[in-house]
Design a protein around this nucleic acid. Sequence first.
DNA 1: ACCTGAACACCGTTCAAGT
DNA 2: ACCTGAACACCGTTCAAGT
Lengths: 182, 182
Amino acid sequence: MRADARRNYDRIVEVAREVFREQGYDASLDEVAKRAGVGPGTLYRHFPKRENLLDAIMQSWVAKVSETADKALAHEGSDRELLLNWFQEYVGLISQHRGGPAKITSAMGDPASPIMTKCQVLAQANERVIDRLREDGCLRADVDTLQVCRLVGGVATVADQGELDPEAVRPMLEVVADGLLK
Amino acid sequence: MRADARRNYDRIVEVAREVFREQGYDASLDEVAKRAGVGPGTLYRHFPKRENLLDAIMQSWVAKVSETADKALAHEGSDRELLLNWFQEYVGLISQHRGGPAKITSAMGDPASPIMTKCQVLAQANERVIDRLREDGCLRADVDTLQVCRLVGGVATVADQGELDPEAVRPMLEVVADGLLK
DNA sequence: ACCTGAACACCGTTCAAGT
DNA sequence: ACCTGAACACCGTTCAAGT
């Protein structure tokens, strides 16, 4: 990759992170190109689809996901607390910008999605937590990890689109947790 | 209302129902106007915002909502079955077209939304079912009906956006139901 | 009072011309 | 090899002119 291409690529990603944080995942790509100081064609050369840009933004995100799962697993306290705490972290992880919860949750089951590998990391982090609780024997028999991602993702999506505050989200996560625990 | 205005209004609503069913709630309004045989200005005169058009479409929907709740309440069987059956009907009611679950669920808590009254009808139908179970004493103490709408709406939204089939939705609704029941 | 359709704004996407 | 920016398509929205 040529030096100027590299520089443009990096600037676009940096600016996109900023714009998506401000305006959500539906923000104008024209705006991103403008702020990055490149023509629209340059943005499309590097990122043919909007999801490719999202994928690049999420590059640093995967490390945070694993870390968060580690911390959640190290949590002292009851199984319920551990699960609930993880759910809250999970919602936080996918709610970095508006439209994120819906996008990430729907990409989870779609092998054709450019952000699929990123979603896999999240799914595996979730699996680690669920497996740990399964070993403890406190989960119901037929709990599927993908299902858990969708349930918590659904709560996050509703919270995102309805602009709910964390106090309204917590009790919903409690219901989901209680439905999964014995 | 003048006769030709009435006729145009009705045709637009009829066509919009069709187009939304085919292409989802994000369908082009230009397409609706074209199929209805009116200019775009006429559509905007009757329906200044997309949500006003949705509201008109949902006119006949409210009767179906009440009916469905009646039927669910008349259900013979366990409390869990009754609740689960209602949840499935609820998902069906808000999933008439793509984008519906998200739109309806987020409008539920927004007093400024044009479809708010329609959502209230749904919320009240849900409340009747929940109150009935509360009387039976089989619900947890702090179950809030709006919360229930959001939880089930979240499942419906995820299912809608991920194009999941009913077999994948049912177990998620079971988790929610079990989390609400004693 | 209501309708029409041209006109404008905005945005995604492509591509010929440049370096 | 990469960038630029004009050009096109599409869609929502407005409004002057018409009936």
